[in-house]
């Protein structure tokens, strides 16, 4: 579906009012990856890492400075309009609907822009109205919609023409828990039932953990991770934490292969690598354990660690 080889984007920014200095910014540096049809993958990176720049090159909005890119067998920047018919894009922080017009009006215009046959339009609209529960506000002007309502409208707008590939830039940004869940369920459904390939950029690690089976991490324009989430945890999150409740408050335990991170009354947190049962045995030899628990690192912690490298 997507093939990217040594893709680069360099911006030349001119600085200064009178003596203009050329300033070169390498937003994306020779990244390579491939995406198969039907994947649902997350694209992650801190602000300014090059995520949006990559997506814009994949949709043909930006012309790459170097490397090769092919989406659905097309060169995006040369075949932008042809490609646009086959893909959907949603940028969570931008309004793509017509601000002053009722939601339904935007959909009808999009039907003409994408030349969707009337029968198929009715079918998919009926489906989105149901799945995303649009009926309550479909005749409301977009400017009067809540953020959650608008995002549901935006998703519909991105999907009405039945794209094979969907680019989502921060689709859940600013949404409350319920609205977020609705959007996630929807993405899982279109990916599973319709086989839509979804590429998702987000800062919301909950999105990634619940939705994606593969993760790309970009930082300073370079791809630093391409793989599954369990592998990522293993690679960067090797350390776990053993939480033990002792009989009473005590000094921090001195145990081989672990360091005490925190003490709170009878409870102590021990950071360790390797086998939890061996460590438990060593702790049990030193003190009486009332209760214990092993904490796996969460993805947020892992990502923080990757960014800090």
């Amino acid at each position: 579906m997507i093939e990217v080889e040594n893709l680069s984007k360099r911006f030349v920014v001119r600085r200064g009012r009178f003596r203009r200095e050329r300033h070169v910014v390498d937003a994306v540096k020779e990244i390579s990856f491939g995406v198969e049809r039907g994947e649902l993958l997350g694209y992650l990176g801190p602000n300014g890492a090059g995520k949006s720049t990559t997506i814009k090159m994949l949709t043909g909005i930006l012309v790459p400075s170097g490397g090769r890119v092919s989406v659905g067998g097309l060169d995006p920047s040369r075949k932008r309009i042809e490609l646009a018919r086959r893909i959907g894009a949603m940028f969570g922080q931008r309004v793509q609907l017509w601000w002053d017009l009722p939601l339904l009006d935007s959909f009808q215009l999009l039907r003409h822009i994408y030349k969707v046959p009337p029968g198929r339009y009715r079918e998919s609209l009926a489906r989105f109205r149901e799945v995303l529960e649009l009926d309550a506000f479909i005749h409301t002007p977009v400017r009067q919609l809540s953020l959650g309502q608008r995002i549901r409208g935006e998703l519909t707008a991105a999907m009405l023409h039945g794209p094979e590939l969907l680019f989502l830039d921060e689709p859940t940004i600013g949404l409350d828990v319920v609205a977020k869940q609705r959007v996630r369920d929807f993405l899982v459904e279109i990916n599973r039932d319709d086989g839509v390939t979804v590429m998702l950029t987000t800062h919301d690690l909950g999105d990634i953990e619940r939705l994606c089976n593969r993760l790309l991490v970009i930082d300073h324009g370079s791809l630093i991770w391409d793989g599954g989430i369990p592998e990522l945890k293993e690679r960067y999150g090797g350390e776990r934490v053993l939480v033990v409740d002792l009989e009473g408050p005590s000094e921090p335990l001195q145990v081989d292969g672990a360091t005490v991170e925190r003490v709170e009354g009878p409870r102590q947190w021990l950071r360790f690598r390797g086998s939890a049962s061996e460590l438990t045995a060593r702790v049990a030899a030193a003190a009486r354990i009332v209760d214990l628990q092993v904490q796996e690192p969460d993805i947020e912690e892992i990502v923080r660690r990757i960014y800090m490298r």
């Binding site: 814009k56 043909g60 646009a84 894009a89 931008r94």
Partner: peptide, 14 residues
Amino acid sequence: RDGSIATDLARPLD
């Protein structure tokens, strides 16, 4: 200026 032009260009329309 606000970057919305990107969404316009992501559509099959001049």
